[in-house]
Amino acid sequence: MEDDGILGIQRPGDDADPRNSAATRYRDGNINLTGLWTYYCGIGGNADELALDAYLHEMMELPPLQMDLIHTAIEEITAEGL
């Protein structure tokens, strides 16, 4: 598994566009938006669902920490096979 999340913490946006990998994983992972947002909110995320949707469709930037939390949420959901 890639460790772009850790890179993301240290220098957000330094790696390849983090939105790409988040968006790709979201699409490949067969994850639904509300489920992802709920999980992300559960681990302390603060952006709203609409912002998350826009972010995943690469239409909007979010603060680095929020992007990291979204990555983590996607990873944890995928790992759990929810």
Binding site: G5, I6, I9, G44, L65, D68, L69, T72
Partner: peptide, 8 residues
């Protein structure tokens, strides 16, 4: 951030 880093 610290919590997230600890998890990572």
């Amino acid at each position: 951030k610290l919590l997230h880093l600890a998890s990572r």
